[in-house]
Amino acid sequence: MSGLAHYLEDEGLATTIVALVREHIVSMHPPRALWVPFELGRPFAEPDQAALQRRILEAALALLDKPVSSPFLQDFTEQMPYQPSDASWSPPGSLDSRSATAEASSLLPIWQKAQYRVGKTTVGISGLTPDIAVEYIERYHLPDPMPNPKGMAAVSRARFAIDDIKAYYSEAALASGGYPSSHQLHEWFWNHTMAGTMIRDFQDIARLSDDSNLQLISGSLVPAERTYEYS
């Protein structure tokens, strides 16, 4: 991010960064940066908090009004508490527990309800539907794996299918409303769903695989603190 600022500024564009890792800004000294104290992955804070998002954007753009000639880093001073848990939220219940594929299929109507409620889905990066993505991963290491559609290497397909599965479950978890924290969503997915267990199992097999590409992606499937090794 800071590197991009150097290059774009050198080409004649004025830049301002919304920064999540203060240490990287201090190290790379881009022209202007606003450090925000939010969770990684949330530079503009919380979903559906338009007023707060706007204040962040305005604060970042306001740095352009300061007559600076040396790198300028400002902290976003608005205090935000650690995202609280939503005690009223509860995860989807009554899922089919016979297999990960069955569980995912039983989640489908709940996910569709969530899609209607939120108005969008971020599932689709693998090109597979959510239930097929689960089956693709579930059978990946079996003697009869699912065929990989053309257009993407099998290992890449697996990596993106796993991300689609995570998005599918997270989105479904919002079907009934509420504002669960990311921690609540991760707790449910990794500790209470068959899909979470399936992905951790997949990661363990991938780590020990003879396939170097599979080994390579094994570190980017499960948050480190939720791997079998750390949990």
Partner: peptide, 12 residues
Amino acid sequence: VSTNFDRTGFQQ
């Protein structure tokens, strides 16, 4: 798709 950051905010 790094696991080092949250995507549930973007999903919403």
